[in-house]
């Protein structure tokens, strides 16, 4: 028996790697009156709908998806934010 899950995954450029997109956003925020803003990094939010025996297996499979395709291990970190039954 399998159940359906919605998995939310966050992929961001690894800290210490130049993220010019994040820097451009930080510069824009500064000029818009948010001088308190420090580092900004722009990443991706991936929502995967899938089937698995349980939430733990869904999470494990999602981590494999990240390692194989969704994140680049050279430059990005990923985090599985939530695994939600649907």
């Amino acid at each position: 028996m399998t159940a359906s899950f919605r998995i939310e995954i966050r992929v961001v450029p690894r800290r210490g790697i130049l993220d010019p997109q994040g820097k451009a956003v930080a510069d824009a925020l500064h000029s818009l009156g948010f001088p308190e803003v420090g580092d900004v990094r722009v990443g991706r939010h991936v929502v995967v709908e899938t089937r698995a025996a349980d939430a733990a297996e869904a999470g494990r499979r999602a981590a494999e998806m990240c390692e194989k395709l969704l994140a680049n291990p050279v430059t990005e970190d990923f985090e599985i934010e939530q695994v939600v039954p649907v």
Partner: peptide
């Protein structure tokens, strides 16, 4: 080739965007 692991490293967005 980098994504496939035939070569090391990665190609990222140009610093100038």
């Amino acid at each position: 080739a980098c994504e496939a692991g035939l070569l090391p490293g990665a190609l990222l967005r140009n610093a100038s965007l």
